[in-house]
Write a protein that binds this DNA or RNA. Sequence first.
DNA 1: CGTGCTCCTGTGATTAGATAACATATCGTT
DNA 2: AACGATATGTTATCTAATCACAGGAGCACG
Lengths: 158, 158
Amino acid sequence: MTDQAFEPHDHGACISDGVAAVERICVERGLQLTKARARVLEILLSEHRAMGAYEILDVLRADGLASQPPVAYRALEFLTKNGFAHRIERLNAFIACSHLDGAHAPVFLICRVCNSVAEAQPDPARSEVDRVARSAGFAVERVVREAEGVCPNCARAA
Amino acid sequence: MTDQAFEPHDHGACISDGVAAVERICVERGLQLTKARARVLEILLSEHRAMGAYEILDVLRADGLASQPPVAYRALEFLTKNGFAHRIERLNAFIACSHLDGAHAPVFLICRVCNSVAEAQPDPARSEVDRVARSAGFAVERVVREAEGVCPNCARAA
DNA sequence: CGTGCTCCTGTGATTAGATAACATATCGTT
DNA sequence: AACGATATGTTATCTAATCACAGGAGCACG
Protein backbone atom coordinates (compact mmCIF):
# COMPACT_ATOMS: atom_id res chain seq x y z
CA MET A 1 0.00 0.00 0.00
CA THR A 2 1.24 3.47 -0.78
CA ASP A 3 0.31 6.69 0.94
CA GLN A 4 1.76 9.36 -1.25
CA ALA A 5 0.04 12.07 0.72
CA PHE A 6 1.94 11.21 3.88
CA GLU A 7 5.36 10.75 2.34
CA PRO A 8 7.85 13.12 0.72
CA HIS A 9 7.78 12.95 -3.06
CA ASP A 10 8.38 14.95 -6.23
CA HIS A 11 5.15 16.86 -6.31
CA GLY A 12 5.72 18.55 -9.64
CA ALA A 13 5.89 15.12 -11.23
CA CYS A 14 2.81 14.23 -9.25
CA ILE A 15 0.84 16.82 -11.22
CA SER A 16 2.33 16.35 -14.68
CA ASP A 17 2.29 12.57 -14.46
CA GLY A 18 -1.28 12.64 -13.27
CA VAL A 19 -2.49 14.80 -16.12
CA ALA A 20 -0.53 12.77 -18.65
CA ALA A 21 -1.94 9.50 -17.38
CA VAL A 22 -5.50 10.78 -17.52
CA GLU A 23 -4.93 12.18 -21.01
CA ARG A 24 -3.77 8.78 -22.17
CA ILE A 25 -6.74 7.00 -20.62
CA CYS A 26 -9.14 9.50 -22.20
CA VAL A 27 -7.70 8.83 -25.64
CA GLU A 28 -8.00 5.08 -25.08
CA ARG A 29 -11.62 5.35 -24.02
CA GLY A 30 -12.72 8.10 -26.38
CA LEU A 31 -13.35 10.59 -23.57
CA GLN A 32 -12.95 14.32 -24.03
CA LEU A 33 -10.56 15.86 -21.56
CA THR A 34 -11.65 19.41 -22.31
CA LYS A 35 -9.97 22.58 -21.11
CA ALA A 36 -12.21 23.02 -18.06
CA ARG A 37 -11.95 19.37 -17.09
CA ALA A 38 -8.20 19.30 -17.46
CA ARG A 39 -7.84 22.48 -15.46
CA VAL A 40 -9.96 21.15 -12.61
CA LEU A 41 -7.94 17.94 -12.61
CA GLU A 42 -4.75 19.99 -12.40
CA ILE A 43 -6.15 22.01 -9.53
CA LEU A 44 -7.01 18.84 -7.65
CA LEU A 45 -3.64 17.26 -8.40
CA SER A 46 -1.87 20.33 -7.10
CA GLU A 47 -2.82 19.39 -3.55
CA HIS A 48 -2.96 16.17 -1.58
CA ARG A 49 -6.08 17.29 0.11
CA ALA A 50 -9.74 17.46 -0.73
CA MET A 51 -11.04 20.70 -2.21
CA GLY A 52 -14.57 21.98 -2.12
CA ALA A 53 -16.31 22.81 -5.39
CA TYR A 54 -16.40 26.49 -4.55
CA GLU A 55 -12.75 26.50 -3.65
CA ILE A 56 -12.00 25.06 -7.07
CA LEU A 57 -14.29 27.65 -8.54
CA ASP A 58 -12.24 30.41 -6.93
CA VAL A 59 -9.14 29.13 -8.68
CA LEU A 60 -10.95 28.97 -12.01
CA ARG A 61 -12.15 32.52 -11.48
CA ALA A 62 -8.58 33.65 -10.77
CA ASP A 63 -7.64 32.03 -14.10
CA GLY A 64 -10.23 34.17 -15.83
CA LEU A 65 -12.33 31.15 -16.74
CA ALA A 66 -16.04 30.72 -16.31
CA SER A 67 -16.81 30.56 -12.65
CA GLN A 68 -20.43 29.64 -12.11
CA PRO A 69 -21.04 26.61 -9.89
CA PRO A 70 -22.19 24.29 -12.68
CA VAL A 71 -18.83 24.71 -14.38
CA ALA A 72 -17.03 23.13 -11.47
CA TYR A 73 -19.70 20.55 -10.78
CA ARG A 74 -19.79 19.37 -14.37
CA ALA A 75 -16.05 18.94 -14.50
CA LEU A 76 -16.10 17.15 -11.17
CA GLU A 77 -18.87 14.87 -12.35
CA PHE A 78 -16.84 13.93 -15.39
CA LEU A 79 -13.74 13.30 -13.32
CA THR A 80 -15.45 11.26 -10.63
CA LYS A 81 -17.62 9.26 -13.02
CA ASN A 82 -14.51 8.15 -14.85
CA GLY A 83 -12.47 7.44 -11.76
CA PHE A 84 -10.03 10.35 -12.19
CA ALA A 85 -11.15 11.95 -8.96
CA HIS A 86 -13.07 10.94 -5.88
CA ARG A 87 -15.63 12.62 -3.73
CA ILE A 88 -14.86 12.66 -0.01
CA GLU A 89 -18.31 12.45 1.52
CA ARG A 90 -17.16 13.39 4.97
CA LEU A 91 -15.88 16.72 3.66
CA ASN A 92 -18.23 17.43 0.78
CA ALA A 93 -15.07 17.82 -1.21
CA PHE A 94 -13.03 16.25 -3.99
CA ILE A 95 -9.57 14.82 -4.50
CA ALA A 96 -7.62 13.56 -7.50
CA CYS A 97 -7.34 9.80 -7.74
CA SER A 98 -3.90 8.53 -6.87
CA HIS A 99 -4.42 4.95 -8.08
CA LEU A 100 -5.49 5.33 -11.67
CA ASP A 101 -4.62 1.75 -12.47
CA GLY A 102 -7.51 -0.67 -12.24
CA ALA A 103 -10.89 -0.67 -10.55
CA HIS A 104 -10.86 0.05 -6.88
CA ALA A 105 -12.84 0.56 -3.70
CA PRO A 106 -10.51 2.96 -1.96
CA VAL A 107 -10.19 3.82 1.71
CA PHE A 108 -9.46 7.47 2.45
CA LEU A 109 -7.43 8.59 5.44
CA ILE A 110 -8.27 12.18 6.30
CA CYS A 111 -5.91 14.08 8.61
CA ARG A 112 -7.87 16.62 10.60
CA VAL A 113 -4.67 18.52 11.47
CA CYS A 114 -3.03 19.14 8.10
CA ASN A 115 -6.07 18.29 6.00
CA SER A 116 -4.16 15.92 3.78
CA VAL A 117 -6.05 12.95 2.40
CA ALA A 118 -4.38 9.68 1.49
CA GLU A 119 -6.01 7.14 -0.78
CA ALA A 120 -5.27 3.59 0.25
CA GLN A 121 -5.93 0.42 -1.72
CA PRO A 122 -7.07 -2.26 0.65
CA ASP A 123 -7.42 -5.92 -0.15
CA PRO A 124 -10.88 -6.17 -1.76
CA ALA A 125 -11.31 -9.72 -0.51
CA ARG A 126 -11.28 -8.53 3.07
CA SER A 127 -13.90 -5.81 2.79
CA GLU A 128 -16.01 -6.02 5.92
CA VAL A 129 -18.62 -3.78 4.28
CA ASP A 130 -19.08 -6.26 1.46
CA ARG A 131 -19.21 -9.15 3.89
CA VAL A 132 -21.89 -7.49 6.00
CA ALA A 133 -23.90 -6.46 2.96
CA ARG A 134 -23.79 -9.95 1.51
CA SER A 135 -25.04 -11.46 4.74
CA ALA A 136 -27.96 -9.01 4.70
CA GLY A 137 -28.82 -9.78 1.09
CA PHE A 138 -27.99 -6.21 0.16
CA ALA A 139 -26.77 -5.49 -3.38
CA VAL A 140 -23.93 -3.00 -3.06
CA GLU A 141 -23.42 -0.47 -5.83
CA ARG A 142 -21.15 2.01 -4.17
CA VAL A 143 -19.11 1.98 -1.00
CA VAL A 144 -17.84 4.88 1.06
CA ARG A 145 -14.95 4.19 3.42
CA GLU A 146 -13.32 7.15 5.08
CA ALA A 147 -11.30 7.39 8.28
CA GLU A 148 -10.75 10.69 10.03
CA GLY A 149 -7.87 11.15 12.42
CA VAL A 150 -4.26 12.23 12.60
CA CYS A 151 -1.65 11.34 10.00
CA PRO A 152 1.79 10.04 11.05
CA ASN A 153 3.51 13.36 10.28
CA CYS A 154 1.17 15.42 12.41
CA ALA A 155 1.26 12.82 15.19
CA ARG A 156 5.04 13.03 15.22
CA ALA A 157 4.91 16.84 15.30
CA ALA A 158 2.60 16.86 18.30
CA MET B 1 -26.16 -9.30 12.68
CA THR B 2 -29.61 -7.76 12.66
CA ASP B 3 -31.08 -5.54 10.00
CA GLN B 4 -34.22 -4.24 11.56
CA ALA B 5 -34.81 -1.84 8.71
CA PHE B 6 -35.14 -4.64 6.19
CA GLU B 7 -37.33 -6.92 8.26
CA PRO B 8 -40.93 -6.72 9.50
CA HIS B 9 -41.18 -5.67 13.12
CA ASP B 10 -43.35 -3.90 15.69
CA HIS B 11 -42.53 -0.36 14.80
CA GLY B 12 -44.49 1.28 17.60
CA ALA B 13 -42.31 -0.56 20.07
CA CYS B 14 -39.33 0.50 18.00
CA ILE B 15 -40.06 4.14 18.89
CA SER B 16 -41.10 3.78 22.53
CA ASP B 17 -38.33 1.34 23.35
CA GLY B 18 -35.82 3.59 21.67
CA VAL B 19 -36.84 6.65 23.63
CA ALA B 20 -36.99 4.69 26.89
CA ALA B 21 -33.53 3.25 26.36
CA VAL B 22 -32.03 6.64 25.64
CA GLU B 23 -33.78 8.14 28.66
CA ARG B 24 -32.24 5.48 30.85
CA ILE B 25 -28.77 6.03 29.45
CA CYS B 26 -29.09 9.79 29.91
CA VAL B 27 -29.95 9.32 33.59
CA GLU B 28 -27.00 7.00 34.01
CA ARG B 29 -24.60 9.42 32.44
CA GLY B 30 -26.06 12.65 33.76
CA LEU B 31 -27.11 13.87 30.33
CA GLN B 32 -30.11 16.10 29.80
CA LEU B 33 -32.61 14.68 27.36
CA THR B 34 -34.49 17.94 26.96
CA LYS B 35 -37.81 18.41 25.18
CA ALA B 36 -36.29 19.41 21.88
CA ARG B 37 -33.73 16.62 21.97
CA ALA B 38 -36.29 13.99 22.87
CA ARG B 39 -38.61 15.18 20.14
CA VAL B 40 -35.91 15.01 17.50
CA LEU B 41 -34.99 11.53 18.66
CA GLU B 42 -38.63 10.49 18.36
CA ILE B 43 -38.82 11.93 14.87
CA LEU B 44 -35.75 9.98 13.84
CA LEU B 45 -37.00 6.78 15.46
CA SER B 46 -40.28 7.10 13.61
CA GLU B 47 -38.57 6.14 10.36
CA HIS B 48 -35.93 3.62 9.35
CA ARG B 49 -34.44 6.06 6.99
CA ALA B 50 -32.14 9.02 7.24
CA MET B 51 -33.76 12.43 7.56
CA GLY B 52 -32.24 15.76 6.62
CA ALA B 53 -31.98 18.46 9.26
CA TYR B 54 -34.48 20.63 7.44
CA GLU B 55 -36.91 17.77 7.10
CA ILE B 56 -36.75 17.32 10.87
CA LEU B 57 -37.20 21.03 11.22
CA ASP B 58 -40.42 20.85 9.22
CA VAL B 59 -41.82 18.34 11.68
CA LEU B 60 -40.82 20.51 14.63
CA ARG B 61 -42.48 23.46 12.97
CA ALA B 62 -45.68 21.43 12.49
CA ASP B 63 -45.50 20.70 16.22
CA GLY B 64 -45.45 24.41 16.90
CA LEU B 65 -41.93 24.26 18.30
CA ALA B 66 -39.03 26.51 17.49
CA SER B 67 -37.99 25.92 13.95
CA GLN B 68 -34.79 27.76 13.17
CA PRO B 69 -31.98 25.59 11.79
CA PRO B 70 -29.81 25.75 14.92
CA VAL B 71 -32.59 24.12 16.91
CA ALA B 72 -32.38 20.97 14.85
CA TYR B 73 -28.61 21.04 14.52
CA ARG B 74 -28.10 21.40 18.26
CA ALA B 75 -30.35 18.49 19.04
CA LEU B 76 -28.67 16.42 16.35
CA GLU B 77 -25.25 17.30 17.70
CA PHE B 78 -26.28 16.12 21.14
CA LEU B 79 -27.74 12.91 19.79
CA THR B 80 -24.83 12.05 17.55
CA LYS B 81 -22.16 13.02 20.06
CA ASN B 82 -23.67 10.63 22.56
CA GLY B 83 -24.25 7.82 20.10
CA PHE B 84 -28.04 8.05 20.05
CA ALA B 85 -28.10 8.93 16.40
CA HIS B 86 -25.72 8.75 13.47
CA ARG B 87 -24.96 11.03 10.61
CA ILE B 88 -25.11 9.42 7.17
CA GLU B 89 -22.42 11.31 5.31
CA ARG B 90 -23.47 10.11 1.91
CA LEU B 91 -26.91 11.66 2.40
CA ASN B 92 -26.13 14.63 4.63
CA ALA B 93 -28.79 13.20 6.86
CA PHE B 94 -29.36 11.55 10.22
CA ILE B 95 -30.76 8.32 11.58
CA ALA B 96 -31.52 7.00 15.06
CA CYS B 97 -29.03 4.49 16.37
CA SER B 98 -30.39 0.96 16.36
CA HIS B 99 -27.62 -0.59 18.43
CA LEU B 100 -27.52 1.46 21.59
CA ASP B 101 -25.66 -1.23 23.45
CA GLY B 102 -21.91 -0.82 23.49
CA ALA B 103 -19.40 1.16 21.47
CA HIS B 104 -19.53 0.52 17.77
CA ALA B 105 -18.19 1.35 14.35
CA PRO B 106 -21.31 0.70 12.33
CA VAL B 107 -21.74 -0.03 8.66
CA PHE B 108 -24.77 1.54 7.02
CA LEU B 109 -26.63 -0.06 4.14
CA ILE B 110 -28.52 2.59 2.21
CA CYS B 111 -31.23 1.45 -0.21
CA ARG B 112 -31.52 3.88 -3.08
CA VAL B 113 -34.96 2.56 -3.99
CA CYS B 114 -36.93 2.71 -0.74
CA ASN B 115 -34.49 4.99 1.09
CA SER B 116 -34.34 2.74 4.12
CA VAL B 117 -31.06 2.61 6.00
CA ALA B 118 -29.95 -0.41 8.01
CA GLU B 119 -27.27 -0.20 10.65
CA ALA B 120 -25.11 -3.28 10.78
CA GLN B 121 -22.61 -4.27 13.44
CA PRO B 122 -19.65 -5.85 11.78
CA ASP B 123 -16.90 -7.72 13.52
CA PRO B 124 -14.52 -4.95 14.67
CA ALA B 125 -11.55 -7.26 14.45
CA ARG B 126 -11.98 -7.52 10.71
CA SER B 127 -12.15 -3.85 9.88
CA GLU B 128 -10.18 -3.34 6.72
CA VAL B 129 -10.21 0.41 7.31
CA ASP B 130 -8.46 -0.04 10.65
CA ARG B 131 -5.99 -2.47 9.13
CA VAL B 132 -5.09 -0.06 6.34
CA ALA B 133 -4.85 2.89 8.71
CA ARG B 134 -2.59 1.00 11.09
CA SER B 135 -0.25 0.04 8.32
CA ALA B 136 -0.02 3.71 7.32
CA GLY B 137 0.65 4.84 10.88
CA PHE B 138 -2.59 6.78 10.83
CA ALA B 139 -4.41 7.34 14.14
CA VAL B 140 -8.10 6.80 13.44
CA GLU B 141 -10.62 8.81 15.42
CA ARG B 142 -13.74 8.31 13.40
CA VAL B 143 -14.69 5.93 10.62
CA VAL B 144 -17.36 6.29 7.98
CA ARG B 145 -18.54 3.12 6.30
CA GLU B 146 -21.59 3.35 4.09
CA ALA B 147 -22.78 1.14 1.26
CA GLU B 148 -25.32 2.35 -1.24
CA GLY B 149 -27.35 -0.10 -3.27
CA VAL B 150 -30.58 -2.06 -3.25
CA CYS B 151 -32.02 -3.76 -0.19
CA PRO B 152 -33.33 -7.34 -0.37
CA ASN B 153 -36.98 -6.25 -0.34
CA CYS B 154 -36.61 -3.87 -3.25
CA ALA B 155 -34.49 -6.39 -5.16
CA ARG B 156 -37.25 -8.97 -4.76
CA ALA B 157 -39.89 -6.46 -5.88
CA ALA B 158 -37.99 -5.65 -9.08
C1' DC C 1 -30.48 36.36 49.09
C1' DG C 2 -28.24 37.21 45.11
C1' DT C 3 -24.15 36.73 42.28
C1' DG C 4 -21.96 34.07 39.12
C1' DC C 5 -21.58 29.91 36.42
C1' DT C 6 -22.94 26.49 33.17
C1' DC C 7 -25.85 24.75 30.07
C1' DC C 8 -29.70 25.20 27.07
C1' DT C 9 -32.90 27.95 24.02
C1' DG C 10 -34.58 31.52 20.47
C1' DT C 11 -33.80 34.23 16.48
C1' DG C 12 -31.81 36.77 12.54
C1' DA C 13 -28.34 36.67 9.29
C1' DT C 14 -24.93 34.58 6.57
C1' DT C 15 -22.02 31.14 4.33
C1' DA C 16 -21.33 26.79 1.81
C1' DG C 17 -22.81 23.22 -1.22
C1' DA C 18 -25.58 21.67 -5.12
C1' DT C 19 -28.91 21.64 -8.88
C1' DA C 20 -32.69 23.25 -12.23
C1' DA C 21 -33.66 25.29 -16.36
C1' DC C 22 -32.68 27.26 -20.56
C1' DA C 23 -29.90 29.17 -24.24
C1' DT C 24 -25.79 28.63 -27.05
C1' DA C 25 -21.81 26.50 -29.14
C1' DT C 26 -18.86 22.89 -31.24
C1' DC C 27 -17.93 18.97 -33.88
C1' DG C 28 -18.41 14.94 -36.48
C1' DT C 29 -21.83 12.41 -39.47
C1' DT C 30 -24.96 11.85 -43.17
C1' DA D 1 -26.62 22.00 -45.16
C1' DA D 2 -29.07 19.60 -41.50
C1' DC D 3 -28.82 16.75 -37.63
C1' DG D 4 -27.60 14.69 -33.30
C1' DA D 5 -24.64 14.31 -29.53
C1' DT D 6 -21.90 16.50 -26.38
C1' DA D 7 -20.08 20.42 -23.96
C1' DT D 8 -20.47 25.30 -22.28
C1' DG D 9 -22.34 29.72 -20.18
C1' DT D 10 -25.50 32.02 -17.17
C1' DT D 11 -29.42 33.10 -14.05
C1' DA D 12 -31.86 31.66 -10.46
C1' DT D 13 -33.00 28.69 -6.87
C1' DC D 14 -32.74 25.29 -3.32
C1' DT D 15 -30.67 22.69 0.43
C1' DA D 16 -27.36 22.28 4.19
C1' DA D 17 -24.82 24.27 7.92
C1' DT D 18 -22.93 27.78 10.87
C1' DC D 19 -22.25 32.42 13.19
C1' DA D 20 -23.36 35.72 16.40
C1' DC D 21 -25.83 37.42 19.99
C1' DA D 22 -29.58 37.79 23.38
C1' DG D 23 -32.09 35.59 26.86
C1' DG D 24 -33.56 31.95 30.37
C1' DA D 25 -33.43 27.96 33.73
C1' DG D 26 -31.07 25.64 37.29
C1' DC D 27 -27.59 25.24 40.65
C1' DA D 28 -23.68 26.24 43.88
C1' DC D 29 -21.35 29.10 46.83
C1' DG D 30 -20.48 32.88 49.73
